[in-house]
């Protein structure tokens, strides 16, 4: 009985408003970030995410709950691919408010600040493919397998993109 109920739940459609809301709460942020890593335009990312969720609602009968996440990623990705204009990806470091900042010497802090600035620029200059994979891993903390799934590529390809991204970042940061 319990198993059956579980089975029923997973195959339930997104047409139920509670389920739709749940899907939104679970995935909207990561989908938004994913598309932001690609396009670097938060307004555009808003639009793409909104459109994707609207499409999900309209096609709710065809999309089972367990497929909703990849459906959303596919929708925003396709929409993104249709876009021509790309923006510079702007990422900012969190203001690290840690108690021990006073203990560090000013020289170190300055160097650290410069390093972070360089890193931000270097990431913005990465190719879209490398940046998306790299940021999904670094910021979103996604495993290679998950990234491979989202981007529709192999784990090996994710590994390659990560290596390339790191190599490019290092080159750019140390050259400047």
């Amino acid at each position: 009985m319990e198993r059956k109920k579980h089975f029923m739940d997973t195959s339930e459609s997104v047409c139920s408003e509670t389920i739709y809301n749940k899907v939104y709460n679970e995935h909207s942020k990561s989908v938004w970030r994913f598309i932001y890593f690609k396009c670097g335009d938060s307004a555009r990312a808003d639009d793409l995410v909104q459109d994707a969720f609207i499409k999900l609602w309209q096609n709710c009968a065809k999309v089972p709950v367990e497929k909703a996440r990849s459906y959303l990623y596919t929708l925003v990705n396709n929409a993104f691919l249709n876009e021509i204009a790309h923006h510079k990806v702007v990422l900012k470091h969190r203001e690290t408010v840690t108690g021990n900042t006073d203990n560090q010497n000013p020289q170190y802090l300055l160097e650290e600040k410069q390093f972070k600035e360089k890193l931000e620029n270097a990431i913005a200059n990465l190719s879209e493919a490398q940046r998306t994979a790299f940021l999904l891993n670094r910021i979103e903390g996604k495993k290679y397998r998950e990234i491979a799934e989202i981007l529709g590529i192999s784990v090996k390809a994710v590994e390659k993109r990560m290596s390339q991204a790191l190599a490019n970042l290092r080159k750019e940061i140390e050259n400047i």
Partner: peptide, 16 residues
């Protein structure tokens, strides 16, 4: 070092 520093980056906030 790069990877560690990147992990502390934040994209703009998404207004859910």
């Amino acid at each position: 070092k790069i990877s560690d520093a990147s992990a502390t980056l934040t994209p703009p906030t998404f207004n859910q």
